[in-house]
Write a protein that binds this DNA or RNA. Sequence first.
DNA 1: CGGCATCCTCTTGGATACTG
DNA 2: CAGTATCCAAGAGGATGCCG
Lengths: 124, 124
Amino acid sequence: MKKEQCEKANVFGKCPFVTTQQLIKGKWAILILHELSDGPVRFKELQRNIDITQATLSSQLKYLEQEGLIKRKVYPEIPPRVEYALTDIGYSFTPVLNEIEKWGMKYIDYLKEKNKEKSVSANS
Amino acid sequence: MKKEQCEKANVFGKCPFVTTQQLIKGKWAILILHELSDGPVRFKELQRNIDITQATLSSQLKYLEQEGLIKRKVYPEIPPRVEYALTDIGYSFTPVLNEIEKWGMKYIDYLKEKNKEKSVSANS
DNA sequence: CGGCATCCTCTTGGATACTG
DNA sequence: CAGTATCCAAGAGGATGCCG
């Protein structure tokens, strides 16, 4: 794409990089999307899987729902049951998640190498 | 990968998602990496391309250099000249950038559709 | 040109307590 | 179980001015 789209006027909804960044910059968005990538998950289960407080999880889910990435389904039961799932556009984010995971593993390896070198030079 | 790696102990350097998120959560990291993906770029040029103040750009670059994603080369000239380039591990981030760009464009289209629907229903 | 130091503001998100 | 309300701390990052 033309770089110009991202230059000067770095606006949400214009530049794909800025737009994506705005959506996933939060501490939890990527993790939540990843948790939902295998199918619907209940609120409580999400909270258990990710280490996050109720209040924070609640606000994050509300945000992601607003942006159209996830959908909320309420089952009229007692006790209440709410499931969260990816929307179509949310599901289409999967390739990004996969690349993030692959690169993350690569970077973790890189960190290990870096630490190894450091301890070697410290011993010399 | 095993989800367990990301559960409970969400630590940088253990879970690939958390690790990557920590590195790119900032407002500028993705844009800077994208700008550098075609080869070395000077400080001033970066500042022109992205709309960012000197102080902020400087601290971002220092951060990315610390994390090993970019490297800094100083040319002993007058006036001074400093070029930034991707390291190997930084360059290997390119596939993530590509997916981010693709998805970002998809999401921008989605936003347009959403707005169209809204104005239609508003006129009915 | 390519920074750094300082100050200051605004947002994110964690802790805690309460509700249907 | 699945939230909401309130309060608060930390950090990101912008503005400005100075320096080699």
